[in-house]
């Protein structure tokens, strides 16, 4: 009873603070906009911690946040090795390969209106398919090390980037293209100076969607076979040993890496497309 009252009390306190903050005069300043979700998150974590401690929930079902933090801090070398294997070698390599391939195909298709009209629907269709299921096939072809993960990631990120790039390259008006023609600009100058810059918001949209897909592909592909290092390997073996604190620690790493990857893309976008209305 005491524990339940405490949990509800923490919730009420957190909610009260946030309501005050959200309705205060300063609610739209940058600091408060970060503070409110932070308070909300901390409230949830506090409730989680109290619930696990008070009701003696077994670590096999749900470890307490403090246990996860301890595991995280004590296994940083392992987590770093897994991060290096899965994110740097698997996800990032595959992301770059898929990105270059998608740009290449998009530029080729762009030269012909016929191909563009074919590639857009097919690519959009492929982007909705469960491509992560190709993981066992690539593991069989390329072995269980990071090369097969990079291949899965490359195929997964290829279609969203391709579709967005092709759609973006079509996003100039006839008036703008005619203006370039009156300047005597050929295909390449008008591509580099008009159509590519105009496509950038679309391209970055695809690149941002692809960041999450890259991590998913690299982690899930490791469930099908991997060397004895890697985030997916660690998650599946730790689940087998019922070491849930280690699983949660890996999930924290995955969440941090995912947000950082996405954030990096958003930052580059901000720098490169500073002129676009959505960035001003």
């Amino acid at each position: 009873m005491m524990a339940l009252a405490l949990i509800l009390g923490v919730w009420a306190a957190g909610w009260w603070v946030n309501t005050r903050l959200a309705h205060s005069a300063a609610s739209d300043t940058a600091g408060v906009r970060l503070l409110i979700p932070a308070v909300f998150g901390l409230t949830l974590i506090a409730m989680w911690e109290i619930a696990v401690r008070a009701y003696d929930i077994s670590g096999v079902i749900l470890p307490a946040p403090s246990d996860i933090a301890v595991t995280f801090a004590s296994s940083i070398p392992t987590l770093m090795a897994d991060f290096n294997q899965t994110i740097i070698k698997g996800a990032l390599t595959g992301y770059i390969i898929g990105m270059i391939a998608a740009f290449g195909v998009a530029l080729l298709a762009d030269r012909s209106d016929f191909l563009t009209r074919g590639i857009l629907p097919v690519g959009a269709f492929m982007a909705a398919l469960p491509i992560v299921g190709t993981a066992p096939i690539f593991v069989k072809w390329l072995g269980s090390d990071w090369e097969s993960k990079a291949a899965v990631v490359a195929v997964m990120v290829f279609f969203p980037i391709l579709v967005n790039t092709v759609a973006g390259l079509r996003d100039t008006s006839a008036m703008q293209r005619d203006l370039m023609r009156t300047y005597g600009a050929g295909y390449w100058p008008s591509l580099l100076k008009l159509r590519l810059p105009a496509a950038l918001p679309f391209i970055f949209n695809g690149l941002k969607i692809a960041t999450t897909l890259a991590l998913i592909g690299a982690i899930v592909a490791e469930f099908f076979g991997s060397p004895t290092v890697g985030m997916g390997f660690r998650i599946s073996t730790s689940v087998g040993r019922l070491a849930m604190d280690m699983v949660w620690a890996e999930i924290v790493v995955a969440a941090l890496a995912g947000s950082a990857f996405y954030g990096a893309m958003a930052l580059i976008e901000k720098r490169v497309t500073f002129w676009h209305p959505s960035q001003r």
Partner: peptide, 20 residues
């Protein structure tokens, strides 16, 4: 209050490989 507390998390969660 819900908007300010939950919405940033809903957006952030799309950058996280939940499938893991």
């Amino acid at each position: 209050t819900m908007d300010k507390s939950v919405m940033p998390w809903a957006i952030t969660s799309q950058t996280i490989p939940i499938l893991a």
